[in-house]
Write a protein that binds this DNA or RNA. Sequence first.
DNA 1: GTACGTGTGTAGAACGTTCTCCGAATTGAA
DNA 2: TTCAATTCGGAGAACGTTCTACACACGTAC
Lengths: 347, 347
Amino acid sequence: MAPTSGKRRVTITDVALHAGVSTSAVSKVLRNAYGVSPEMRERVRAAMAELDYRPHAAARGMRGRTYTIGVLLDNIRNAFFADILEGVNTELRGGDYQVLIGAAGFGEEDQTRLARALVDRQMDGLILIGPGFPRTEVLRTAATVPTVVIGHHDVAEEHDSVVDADALGAGLVIDHLVRLGHRRIALTSTPGNRGSGWSGTPERVQRRGYHEAMRRHGLQDLARVAMTAFSEEGGYRAGMELLASADRPTAVFGGADVAAMGVFRAARELGLRIPEDFSLAGYNNTAVAALAPVRLTSVDQAGGLMGTTAARLLLERIEGRTRSVLMTVSPSLVVRGTTGPPPATEV
Amino acid sequence: MAPTSGKRRVTITDVALHAGVSTSAVSKVLRNAYGVSPEMRERVRAAMAELDYRPHAAARGMRGRTYTIGVLLDNIRNAFFADILEGVNTELRGGDYQVLIGAAGFGEEDQTRLARALVDRQMDGLILIGPGFPRTEVLRTAATVPTVVIGHHDVAEEHDSVVDADALGAGLVIDHLVRLGHRRIALTSTPGNRGSGWSGTPERVQRRGYHEAMRRHGLQDLARVAMTAFSEEGGYRAGMELLASADRPTAVFGGADVAAMGVFRAARELGLRIPEDFSLAGYNNTAVAALAPVRLTSVDQAGGLMGTTAARLLLERIEGRTRSVLMTVSPSLVVRGTTGPPPATEV
DNA sequence: GTACGTGTGTAGAACGTTCTCCGAATTGAA
DNA sequence: TTCAATTCGGAGAACGTTCTACACACGTAC
């Protein structure tokens, strides 16, 4: 058994005794419930302060709320998630709720296990960021506890959704590159074994947007997509595949900033200068993109806004809203140093 | 009240009924406790599987453990923390414990509040990464629940400690730069209002190591430290201050990779080429340092190892160890493209 | 004088576990 | 046969809250 050495916790009973009232009364004060006179409220408050009382969340969880919100994500290394979380924290700061994050990894089983763990720990609400476990499992979870899904474009009665207009975002990049004079523009994307049942993963919608934009510019025959993982290494391999080929693209749109970094490495290794010989754009506008040695043109998704929105929607759901809501935020292009006109020989 | 719509949870009673035994028996099986026959264990196991039973963590928390470990950190944006967390997760994967992360921000009150929240939520153990709230509060917490502190060199009976040999790490960088021919080597560091009572914060130990190394090389008079925040912006300001001055250093040791990125921006803005005109090194060897456009020379701290170690120590403490343990991991230098000999005019 | 709110407070039964204690059955030794 | 000793299983009291139900005191309207 854990050595809980220290003295016993101060409980609601201690407070009640100290204030000379019933535990019910203390509980009411605690929850701002109806049926307490101002004087009693004051007396109880004083007693709580005097004894340095803090309610035991686990015990509260047995009957009512735990005042805890769980966030599930695959990997905290993804800087975009940090933006979202900052938004969530901003919205919830000062309120009664605490945010606890679970980093599940990319495995389907691990994610499922974490999701269940969050439910078992009696979270009052869940924010799932780009969940990679089966949709049916998500829906089952969402039927039990208020849930907001961030990223996937699939909507459902059971949960709210906060998404980025990814098709539009992809369009922004293509428009920008075409305007610069590029025609052979490739995309790196990921098959995304994101569990089963999701038809609207961000990467898929982004891909759709890419193809639409290429078609819009009459470049559909030049469209080319390299599928790998959204990671530095994945981007590198995709970059190698694309740039070593005969009719090599003059620009690559990395579907995620990390992947773009990998493409960058491939380009450098092949002796291509950026942006003189080759243009590169990313997606998500994570912190790296802005770094002085990087200066990557990218698409900003307003992660902070997505976070605050998700938190607000979740609170509403906890308070009882049942109609589901879809919130779409629109992306914007941030042009930096990695995109420029294609080399003269290509025009 | 939250709409818990779905059907009622499967409880231990349901399992007991279904298996035709008492709840006590089920509980015993659940906890691998003494006093169950193999047949009964099998029967109960089968019932649990059949009903898809999952113990209610909040309820368990009221008497025994919650099988949850809380990690407190200031900001998930710090890529070094990701390394640590990966280590923690690796060690705990497959076990009974779940890891939940709280991102407290840098404020002293916010951190204190989060720490208390974790205790209130009945965590079985706590991992505090570079805590920025008062040491007394940490010690009080550690007296109540098993705790491991990562980063700070201050040791105590109440908790275990996992630290990097930061003085040594600073020495590695200085040695490397001196060997290249540099003499005017500056450091960017942070005052770090990391709560009160900590005398061994990583940055302080690192600073000490820097001064020792400079003295060792007879360069104590050329030592120079710019104090700012460990952030891109902070690094930029420090870089500007150092590089715009008359006797500008030929090399800067950014006390953290992010800060080094800021210094990079300052250098570029002043028209200094790296590493031809000016050398730059970072600390922590975060993911950015390895990126193709960055290639920052940095000090690797083996964050993963720190994480696995911390997790292991914590489990031991939960199992009852009371003697405190200090674990030091040694850093290693990773030389990349941002360091080279000083410009000829300087030698 | 009765009936009916309305506002303020308490009693006490949940909630789903853990764990101490106790009883029954079985075994082994004297 | 009797008496421990050992093993297996269950009863039931916690744990710290929430929340329903109810009691009481005080109007107020008829």
